[in-house]
């Protein structure tokens, strides 16, 4: 077997490795009862997703994923857990039947919808000329084609900020 084929194989293995990392991390995040380990799993999952971005030939997205999702969001989550106190010794509360049923229904409906969409959609073939995921092109796309979604994201952030202010304000009044 020529070495170039071996390199190809190695590249594919690394790709599958990042997919596996994303899945394993997500599984840890969902199933681990210890909150802080769940966050560590989430960070692992984000790392796997960053690896997939790299194979989609956008190193910019890869590093942004690591910088924002692991470096900022996971750190903030860990910090929030620390402020909330040590939850490791607490046993999870027993599930109430009605909310569990409703959550299960909603989740399966959403999964069904996603599956239906994925199976019936007319998938376009990948473009033959690959666009480079360079920061310049991404910036242009954000400020022209996708300027609407770009602005909407900022609205989401504003809502989150107002919510946070409201929560902290309320907490101070109670004291």
């Amino acid at each position: 077997m020529p070495v170039s084929d071996l390199m190809q194989l190695a590249a594919e293995l690394i790709f599958l490795g990042s997919v596996a990392t994303a899945f394993v991390g997500a599984a840890i995040a969902i199933f681990n009862p210890i909150l802080i380990r769940g966050i560590a799993g989430l960070a692992l999952s984000f790392l796997g997703v960053a690896g997939i971005y790299y194979f989609l030939s956008s190193p910019f997205l890869t590093f942004m994923q690591v910088l924002i999702y692991i470096g900022a969001i996971c750190v903030t989550l860990v910090f929030a857990v620390m402020l909330a106190g040590n939850g490791a010794e607490k046993k999870p509360e027993k599930r109430k039947p009605l909310p569990t049923l409703m959550a299960a229904l909603a989740c399966s409906a959403f999964t069904g919808f996603l599956l239906y969409a994925a199976l019936t959609a007319q998938w376009k073939a990948a473009p033959s000329t690959q666009l480079d995921g360079s920061p310049g092109r991404i910036g242009e796309a954000f400020l022209s084609t996708y300027s609407m979604s770009f602005e909407l994201i900022s609205v989401v952030l504003v809502v989150a900020m107002i919510g946070a202010l409201l929560l902290s304000r309320d907490g101070r009044d109670k004291q």
């Binding site: 802080i36 190193p59 690591v66 692991i70 750190v75 860990v78 910090f79």
Partner: peptide, 16 residues
């Protein structure tokens, strides 16, 4: 960008 990205994980290690 890569250096800033990797350096930002350092805090997570200290926290954990």
């Amino acid at each position: 960008l890569a250096i800033f990205a990797f350096a930002s994980i350092n805090v997570l290690g200290l926290l954990l």
